[in-house]
Design a protein around this nucleic acid. Structure first.
Lengths: 218, 218
DNA sequence: CGCCAGATGGACTACAGGGTCCCATTCTCG
DNA sequence: CGAGAATGGGACCCTGTAGTCCATCTGGCG
């Protein structure tokens, strides 16, 4: 013992702009390749080539492939949450949810349903093989669901949703429909199942909307 | 042309009982291992050892790993469809759906949500890497959904479901909720999300139940 | 009983892909 | 500018894994 993690006075690692940029290039390439081929089917040589770097760079910035994959989990998680924050943090009405749905469907339609969700596919591939990755992914899903449930809470507080609506459960259901929709769309190479799934979840949420004050049944 | 699948007079490959049993053992082992480790992370040596066979057996019965995987897709598809037929082909009421839901949840709870759906996980892993496997999986999902939608059709015909219910869409939504539920449950190592997702889908179907003739609103 | 095709065991090969190493280049700072 | 650290290139090593091969065994059939 004796080599604890005290910050060595003068020995802290200098990190340059160039180094950061390289690391970013590697992650970006890994992100791109692993989305279409899957994590295990993507080799470090593929990444090296696509990122215009070299083996020594990969191992300079990441201890090994597993660490690179974990970094990618964080990277993708941050990307998705950032994107979703944009679409959800001001959510206050049902029509906002519809717009959010449309954006996801449209994006997926561009690929004819292929590739699925970057987080979902990693979750399937890694959950049974890297406990640390699994737990990060699980937390990311939780954060994503929270963006949704926060919006639903706002809708409930403002009276748009009835008091008996349970935002957390609705958010989990919506997330499951989204992920299942991605999966089926990917298998079918067709967005349709994803649309149907999201519409079901939205319909379900709709059933918790407050009756308009003087509304009739039809 | 010219080499159609006519039974060659004397040269048809004799296939013995023992051979069939070995092939079955291999598939059974592959099924078991690939469910927990994933397809790509499972090696042929793993399978050889688990099935108590040898390399020559693997290559005697399957051209290569890809063919073995495709055979596994068929194998699992047949297993799942057979199991689901048992639970769905006599489906005639909403309570039958609830029983079906409970059986799936209970089975998944035994693993604390781990491993997910054998078909869904293969779909994610293979869809972007083996077109043939993808299309077989897609067909299997379709057949599975049809078992559900057939049941819903029966319910509609018998008047349990309203005429405006769309069995195909309801079945797709239910399947997406199931698959998404499996995925989230696997990531969380907890069945809960799967339950919530299936309950959402069932609640949605419930909203299409016919009003009981003289029923009150509450 | 002897033949033969199918079934089996397992050693062997080829090579892809993860990981190491060493030296060159660039940057930073005194 | 000179020293030393960070960055970079790419050859190389080694293990794991897919795939080959052949000698042997088994069981059905004339």
């Amino acid at each position: 013992m004796g080599d604890e993690q005290v910050a060595a006075p003068t020995k802290q690692r200098r990190i340059s702009q160039r180094g950061i940029a390289t690391r970013e290039r590697i992650l970006e390439a890994a992100n791109r390749l692993m989305l279409v081929r899957g994590v295990n089917a993507t080799t470090l040589d593929d990444i090296r080539e696509a990122s215009q770097t070299s083996k020594s760079q990969l191992y300079h910035h990441f201890a090994d492939k597993q660490e690179l994959v974990r970094a990618l989990v964080r990277y993708r998680g941050a990307l998705v949450l950032q994107r979703e924050r944009g679409g959800l943090e001001r959510l206050r009405s049902f029509s906002g949810l519809v717009r959010w749905r449309n954006a996801l469907v449209q994006a997926n339609a561009l690929n004819n349903g292929k590739y699925g969700c970057g987080l979902g596919s990693m979750a399937v591939e890694l959950s049974d093989q890297d406990e640390q990755a699994r737990s990060m992914l699980s937390e990311t899903f939780a954060a994503w669901e929270k963006l949704i449930s926060d919006g639903l809470h706002r809708m409930r507080d403002s009276g748009a949703l009835r008091q008996d609506a349970e935002p957390e459960k609705l958010a989990t259901g919506l997330m499951a429909a989204l992920q299942g929709g991605y999966l089926l769309a990917n298998a079918a190479h067709d967005v349709a199942p994803m649309e149907v799934a999201l519409d079901m979840a939205l319909e379900h949420i709709k059933s918790f909307l407050s009756e308009p004050p003087g509304g009739s049944t039809r």
